[in-house]
Amino acid sequence: MDTRKNVSGAERKIWSLIRDCSGKLEGVTETSVLEVLLIVSRVLGIRKEDLFLKDLGVSPTEEKRILELVEKRASGYPLHYILGEKEFMGLSFLVEEGVFVPRPETEELVELALELIRKYGIKTVADIGTGSGAIGVSVAKFSDAIVFATDVSSKAVEIARKNAERHGVSDRFFVRKGEFLEPFKEKFASIEMILSNPPYVKSSAHLPKDVLFEPPEALFGGEDGLDFYREFFGRYDTSGKIVLMEIGEDQVEELKKIVSDTVFLKDSAGKYRFLLLNRRSS
């Protein structure tokens, strides 16, 4: 009796494909096996765990597609553009070339914002440079606030709108194309809290290959990475409002010169990551 039933032939094939592919990604990522599992799941249209739960075969067309995408990833192309989505705050956000891929630090900004919204009963929030809509859509999803979002990229505006629809908050998330809060000038007085993950990377920074595929306008903040903050605080009167923004971990001293009455908060990795300016009267 053959007792070697524990691994089928088809399965052996798929796992040897996964092994070969992960070898190709070792140069671009520390999580090569995981990334291949995600790419394979995407091509086969299955959940990752199904790779363990079912004896799956791979058709020649699927194998070809997997190899193409793995090659693409091996060139440094961002994984999340290949997958077409990135999870943020437990919500899946559509992302594609031309849109910044949301980062975990920014989830902590959203959590902080949600705390403040609850604490003060805030009703109106702005999100500058919304990108995929990660901050604004999450805030709308997890609170009752209305969100006015902006972005200079029409691609981002389009994707953010789709993400708002995807998470059922189109009635409270409004996005317009433009700089800072210019597209919502008429609403400025009513905005109680301004959120943003503005570009803060120094133009001289040496970035990993995959980050370089992301839109430069979402990343680079001039020579010292502070152009956005300088312009924003120079342009808008924030009295009576709360401003919560993400910052680069080494920008605290320079930012103090731009806005003096700010509190700087660390992220859970222990790095200065947020600027909080509370000019609310109550």
């Binding site: 999580t31 891929v101 630090e105 990993p208 990343l219 680069g248 990795a269």
Partner: peptide
């Protein structure tokens, strides 16, 4: 005590990791 693990050096916009 809640800790997150990220690459040493820059975080935020400077890196895009697959895992959290």
């Amino acid at each position: 005590k809640i800790e997150t693990f990220r690459a040493s050096g820059h975080g935020g916009q400077y890196v895009n990791k697959t895992e959290s």
